[in-house]
Amino acid sequence: MVADTEIADVRAIKRELAKARRRGWARFMRRLAAHGSFKIGFALFLMIVMLALCANFVAPYDPNKSDYRSILMPPSLDHWFGTDGFGRDIFSRVIHGTRVSLGIGLAVVVATGVLGIFFGLLAGYVRWLDNLLMRIMDGLMAFPGVLLAIALAAALGPSALNAVIALTITFTPRTARVVRSSVLVVRELPYVEAALAVGAGHGRIIFRYILANSLSPLIVQLTFVFAVSILAEAILSFLGVGPPPPAPSLGNIIAEGRNYLQDAGWIALFPGLAIAAAVLGLNLMGDGLRDVTDPRMRSEREAG
């Protein structure tokens, strides 16, 4: 009898939650759409993504076709961004390179997201694993900044896949921490305790409640991981441990252009600006997402 009323209660709670989620989702989108810098960032990033996706149609030249007769040409009507030491068209290379760099960034985001959720949930949910997992994560985070990624990429050898692996290993601990801390908060919430009390399956609890509620800080985190990955790819390529030539990435175009800074500065200039634009777009989007999802930050904005 008692159990029946409890179940009824839980159902009611769930209905309410579902409604709240729908309402919340709609409000979330509305807020986002009204957020100025999110809109700018989204538009900027969308434009870059579209250029990258349509690289084959947009790029006027084959990005890997060397042309011995037009080496190191300054920007002109024929070559908007000039040519490099192989006589290749920088504009075409930047567009194709953006595709590679965004691809690497996206792969890191997906891999980091999946692994971050997995380890974060594991640590937050399975208490006896928490300590061990977090010590390992702490160990990985004890390598300052991108040093771990550089060391791993240097050891694995230069390739796009290895860059993704190195960056994923570097950023997963941070993502896992974000997931873990929201799991720790969420699992103490009354309705989750209630669901636990009535013996709802762990899988259900994890996916219906915990994951759903951990999602927003995770998305914010992953937006920044995306931005940092694009910057980090450039660093890896610059140090010669990123995706190798001839296929262009924004980082390896800069790396090739470093030798011509004074003599053909355009080679390094344009991919640098492309990185800045993509990262700027992502940062603006991340700001918007954080403002909209994080109540504390929102209050600060409203205060301002």
């Binding site: 230069p158 441990v241 190798p244 030539p245 001839p246």
Partner: peptide, 18 residues
């Protein structure tokens, strides 16, 4: 070289390492 060999139909790839 890879580019020139591809042009005559050789399946050439570059493996650049340190």
């Amino acid at each position: 070289i890879a580019e020139q060999l591809q042009a005559v139909g050789i399946n050439a790839t570059v493996n650049q390492v340190d």
